[in-house]
Amino acid sequence: MNALLLSAWFGHLRILQLLVNSGAKIHCENKDGLTLLHCAAQKGHVLILAFIMEDLEDVALDRADKLGRTAFLRAAEHGQLDALDFLVGSGCDHSVKDKEGNTALHLAAGRGHLAVLQRLMDIRLDLEERNVEGLTALHAAAEGIHPNCVQLLLGAGSNVNALTQVARPPHNCCLPLATEL
């Protein structure tokens, strides 16, 4: 990470402004493909997001990192409701999926971010959208052991009997126990 990305990551607006005014390249990314927007969104720094969108030129709102995640998906994954709201208000693509086919609903539900999940449902994302393994947001919430998210999704009409498209055992529950030698 360079100094510019670090200032966005840690929410240091004044440092970010100083670096930009000193000629820092604003279209930089780290080895994972994270840009200024990704860093600020993941950490929930709305003032940084506002500076990037309002004061910098040619910033791609829906640019994906190496996992195929936009700033919107990063905000959802990390439970950053205010950042998510800012990005939605800025006109980001709500229907975007990462390389594994996960939507913002999958990422928020799988991590147990109830408030973000509610907001995503408020903007009418498809509850039955499937990722590449055929998992819905309900599957992600159940697999992540987040009962509040499961309850919220069920209350919103998620299909309780939806089947995955790929056969695989659930996390750790069916793995054989290691025996001592």
Rank of each mutant, 00 (worst) to 15 (best):
A60N: 15
R69V: 03
R69G: 05
T164H: 11
K66Y: 11
N172R: 14
K43G: 10
W9L: 13
A83Q: 02
W9V: 12
D122M: 07
N30H: 06
F86L: 07
M53K: 07
L152N: 05
A24I: 02
E100K: 12
L47P: 13
D32Q: 11
K43C: 11
A3D: 11
A8G: 00
A75C: 06
L5S: 04
E57F: 07
I145V: 14
L13I: 07
W9D: 14
L6E: 12
H27G: 08
D98R: 07
G144R: 06
Q80S: 02
V88P: 09
A71M: 01
L153G: 04
C173T: 12
R124M: 12
T164R: 15
L18R: 10
D62N: 12
C174Y: 14
A71D: 03
L67I: 05
A142P: 03
A104C: 00
W9H: 15
R14P: 04
H94C: 14
A83N: 01
L127R: 04
H139S: 07
A60F: 11
L19C: 03
D32P: 00
G101E: 01
L105N: 01
N172C: 14
A142I: 05
P169F: 13
E143D: 14
D93F: 06
I15C: 14
V166T: 11
L49G: 06
G134I: 03
E57K: 15
T35P: 03
A104M: 01
E54K: 04
Q17M: 03
E29H: 12
G23P: 00
K66W: 08
G110Q: 00
A41V: 03
M121Q: 09
V132H: 10
I123Q: 00
L16R: 06
A8S: 09
G144T: 01
L81N: 01
C173A: 12
A142G: 08
S90K: 14
D122Q: 14
G68A: 04
A8H: 02
N148Q: 11
Q151I: 15
V46N: 02
L61Q: 01
L19F: 00
P176V: 03
L181I: 12
Q118E: 09
L16Y: 03
L153V: 06
A76C: 03
V150P: 08
A64Q: 14
E57R: 13
K31V: 13
A8Q: 05
G144C: 08
F51S: 07
A162C: 08
Q17E: 10
S90R: 15
R111P: 06
A8R: 02
L175R: 14
E29M: 13
A40K: 00
T179M: 13
R63H: 15
L56S: 08
L153I: 06
L4S: 02
L34R: 12
G23F: 04
H146T: 04
L153M: 05
F86N: 05
